[in-house]
Design a protein around this nucleic acid. Sequence first.
DNA 1: CACTCGTGGAA
DNA 2: TTTCCAAGAGT
Length: 297
Amino acid sequence: MSTLDPPLAEIHRRVLTWYASAGRDLPWREPGCTPWGVFVSEVMSQQTPVARVEPAWSAWMRRWPTPADLAADSPGEAVRMWDRLGYPRRALRLHAAATAMVERHGGQVPADEEALLALPGVGAYTAAAVATFAYGIRTTVVDTNIRRVHARLVTGDALPAATLTRAESSLATSLLPEDDAEAATWNVAAMELGALVCTARSPRCAACPVEDLCAWRRAGSPAYDGPARRGQAWADTDRQVRGRLMALLRESPDPVAASDLAAAWPADEAKRERCLASLIEDGLVEPVGDSSYRLPA
DNA sequence: CACTCGTGGAA
DNA sequence: TTTCCAAGAGT
């Protein structure tokens, strides 16, 4: 554990100042936003770019302003409203989380990180993010943006490792400001720096408030030299087929006939049937009668 | 721990 | 056109 030079306080000051002027005015960052609004924004933002989340979040919050409002509706409606944000199991889990809030937390988003972690669809990142952004609690947030900022600024690597390491987590904790409010702002500011400036591809170092302090820049911006990162295949994968089937089911207010689902992926019947079965297993689809299907009621 | 799970925009 | 990858979670 080495002492940073220059002092951490200087990094904090510069990044917080940068964030105050360059941070985006996202609706869930407004002072009046409810913890539920923050919670929804965090779940929607898991693996989905903010630009696509923003309109979806607004529509969602208009329809279901509280956890109880969502819990009172069907999981299928949540999946339909999720539309094309991707990974629709998140919609199912968000609905289940709302139900848990009603049943176990008086209809409120819990402030305790432990309780948050117990909710469906909430992992280490989301629990910390909701605790700090909705409730101002001083806790360590580690997302892909923050990992990349730390990798470059402190460690001197072009990119972080493929999976989160213990060293990264303890580094993030060691960088956290002591003050509660400042820690919360630091968390969002570091994420924002990674999202807008310290990006994965072609970072905009000229716009970075800490470029002269960056270990990676000081080392001459060496290229990534870790193990090859395997890209996500898409064509002919189960994910593509599931997506095709879900699109049909979302668009139809009525149950969809098996023959219509078959037409959505005629090339490989076995694969199609397997995907439909997995969607049913996941609770994203339910059979109606003998040969039609719908989103869960 | 490695793998799966959607979608679409930008390089 | 192809490739990359974006506020991760669950198994």
